[in-house]
């Protein structure tokens, strides 16, 4: 695709977003909705800009990000580890498969009250919830990627003198990387969502908590700010992961 087509596509994509903002502006400036219900976009964005400078808000973002990263990292380590083990070892596979079948569709948020009771209201319960939710897409896509590795790739490596126990790290893992990264991308979006929800349900800080506080006092402007922030965070993190992906997968054919 040439650069001009790309630019025109980006422009096209901006239209609905611009339209949505314009509609939003119109509704509030023509007085269809009072400012207390729907503050105009200008107000929301200037509030966001102003908030970004305050150390208080930075602290909220930091605690949300901390929980997000901690939970996501645990999910990546466990997911890739268990996924690889299940794909390469029949015994692990026989144990892991049914457990995953039961736990993957289980609505993990429902476990949150139990986590609160067991781990307390601090970071631990939220991190655990994020990890539990992000784990399964990463685990399943690792498992899928590792069990789909072309047999002849493994044979080629074995013929070149690779010992059996090194095949996992020299062939299976690198060959599964595209699939693992797909799982990570889903897991990352889930982490953003879940950390926010957990903070809304019970927390003393973080973006989710900001939203709840604002809702209690009917501060509509302050309700929009954390929502827009989490959306932006999601976009930035997704962009970073995309960058990592295109670096790691520079050899792989486009999917």
């Amino acid at each position: 695709m040439n650069a001009r087509a790309l630019t025109s596509e980006v422009l096209l994509g901006i239209i609905p977003i611009a339209l949505a903002v314009a509609l939003w502006q119109a509704i509030s400036s023509f007085g269809y909705a009072p400012v207390t219900l729907l503050p105009p976009p200008g107000l929301v964005f200037s509030r966001l800009a102003q908030q970004l400078g305050t150390s208080n808000f930075q602290h909220e973002i930091a605690s949300t990000l901390f929980r997000l990263f901690a939970g996501f990292s645990i999910a990546v380590i466990l997911g890739v580890g268990i996924g690889l083990a299940a794909a390469t070892n029949p015994v692990v596979n026989a144990v892991v498969r049914p457990i995953v079948r039961v736990l993957a569709p289980l609505p993990k948020v429902a476990l949150y009250p139990a986590l609160l009771l067991l781990l307390g209201f601090g970071h631990e319960s939220k991190i655990t919830l994020v990890a539990a939710d992000a784990l399964f897409p990463i685990l399943l896509s690792t498992y899928y990627g590792a069990s789909m590795v072309e047999q002849k790739l493994i044979w080629s490596a074995m013929a070149a003198g690779t010992p059996r126990r090194q095949i996992l790290f020299k062939v299976v893992l690198p060959a599964a990387v595209p699939s693992i990264l797909t799982g990570c991308r889903i897991g990352l979006v889930i982490s953003c969502i879940v950390v926010f929800l957990a903070e809304m349900i019970s927390s003393t800080d973080g973006l989710g908590h900001m939203l709840v506080t604002a809702a209690r006092t009917f501060q509509a402007v302050d309700m929009f700010v954390p929502l827009i922030t989490i959306s932006l965070l999601g976009l930035i993190l997704n962009g970073l992961l995309q960058g990592l992906r295109s670096y790691l997968l520079r050899g792989f054919p486009e999917v």
């Binding site: 994509g13 901006i14 969502i193 926010f196 309700m223 989490i230 959306s231 997704n238």
Partner: peptide, 20 residues
């Protein structure tokens, strides 16, 4: 046309829209 709009709404927790 729709992709970017979906991209920015994806990481927003839908249940979090509840208060608004």
């Amino acid at each position: 046309f729709f992709n970017p709009l979906l991209m920015i709404t994806y990481p927003v927790p839908k249940a979090a829209l509840m208060p608004i």
